[in-house]
C-alpha cells in the first residue's frame, strides 16, 4: 500500500507526459466546426463565373454528399489542393466552391487559368458568408451530407492523402446513409 502511494506521482507524471506528447502532433487549427450535425445557415452568394447563379445553401440538398471548398486565388495552399480537386471532379465527386475575401473577377480568372472543379461557385468578397458558418481561413473544406447537414470540416489543403484517409471514407459512408 505504502509503495503504491510513492509510485503514484511517478505514474501521474508519466501519464501527463504521454498526454502532452500526443498533443504535440495535433494541429491547433484543426478545430471541429460548430456546425457539425447542423445544416448550413441560409446564404446566397453571388456568382464568380459570369452569368451563372452563384451558390446558396439550398444547393446542398442534392441527394448526395457534397464537398464545400472555401478557396481564394491569393491563398498558397489552395494552389496545392487545386489539382486534387480537379481530379476529384473528374472522378464525379460533387464539389461546390466559395471564393473567400476577394473580388469575383479575381476568382473567375483563377478558375479560367487553373481549371474549374466546381459545380456551383459563389463569391464572398467581404468574407461575411463564410463567417456565417465559421470559416477561419482558406482553404477549408466541409463535407455536407445528402440532407445538407455539415458532417466534417477539414482545415488546410485537401491533399491526396487527406482525401484517401479522411474525406473519401466519410463520403462513402455518407453515400450509403439513408
Amino acid at each position: 500500500m505504502k509503495r503504491i502511494l510513492f509510485i503514484l506521482p511517478v505514474v501521474g507524471f508519466a501519464v501527463l507526459l504521454g498526454v502532452f506528447f500526443a498533443g504535440l502532433g495535433r494541429d491547433p487549427r484543426a478545430l471541429p466546426s460548430a456546425f457539425v450535425g447542423k445544416p448550413l445557415p441560409a446564404f446566397q452568394a453571388p456568382p464568380v463565373r459570369e452569368g451563372d447563379a452563384g451558390l446558396s445553401n439550398t444547393d446542398f440538398q442534392r441527394g448526395e454528399p457534397v464537398l464545400l471548398n472555401v478557396f481564394a486565388s491569393w491563398c498558397g495552399p489552395c494552389r496545392v489542393e487545386h489539382p486534387v480537386l480537379m481530379r476529384l471532379r473528374a472522378q464525379g465527386v460533387a464539389i461546390h466552391g466559395l471564393d473567400w475575401k476577394e473580388d469575383a473577377a479575381a476568382g473567375a480568372k483563377w478558375l479560367v487559368d487553373n481549371g474549374d472543379p466546381y459545380i456551383r461557385v459563389g463569391s464572398d468578397p467581404t468574407g461575411r458568408t463564410g463567417i456565417e458558418f465559421g470559416v477561419a481561413g482558406v482553404p477549408e473544406t466541409f463535407v455536407i451530407d445528402r440532407h445538407g447537414k455539415v458532417r466534417y470540416r477539414h482545415v488546410g489543403a485537401v491533399t491526396s492523402d487527406v482525401w484517401e484517409t479522411k474525406l473519401r471514407p466519410l463520403m462513402e459512408e455518407l453515400r450509403s446513409e439513408p
Partner: peptide, 20 residues
C-alpha cells in the same frame, strides 16, 4: 481570435479578428 489563437480579437491584427 481563431487565426492567432492565443490573442483576443481585441489584440489581434488578423483580418478575421477585425471582421469579428
Amino acid at each position: 481570435c481563431v487565426v492567432c489563437q492565443n490573442q483576443s480579437i481585441d489584440d489581434s491584427d488578423a483580418a478575421l479578428a477585425r471582421d469579428l
